[in-house]
Amino acid sequence: MNWDGFIDRVNSDPVIAQRGADSSFRVLLGMGERERLITVYAGRVVSVTDGPFVMPQCNFALLGSSEAWARFCSPNPAPGDQDIFAYFRTKEVLLAGDTRKFYAHLMYLKLMLLHLRSQA
């Protein structure tokens, strides 16, 4: 899982700049015991805060095991590990919170999560 330079990578991604412009949301990633709170405003990641948190303010959360997220973040994910919706099917990642907000910003969210992958 590649958090080094994550914010810069996302904010300099030309695809996100065009396809995710104006997205604003806050997502909690639960990766086993570890939690990260990502705040996106006007199409840019403005902060990534490390947990643990007590009753954090977020729009929605993606909660999964550290093993599932590690597979997702592989530079070459195996079939079935390449997308969070694959984990929705296997229930390895659960969506909680405001589903409308999740869908409204799904394009940005998915493009952003790709930057957690290490370079091949």
């Binding site: 396809r19 070459n76 994910p77 390449q82 997308d83 969070i84 919706f85 694959a86 409308r100 869908y103 409204a104 799904l106 394009m107 969210l109 998915k110």
Partner: peptide, 18 residues
Amino acid sequence: EVNGPVAGAATVMGLMCP
């Protein structure tokens, strides 16, 4: 309150081989 066609594309984008 959801841009359906864009959300639809986002829904299916991970179904392809990276």
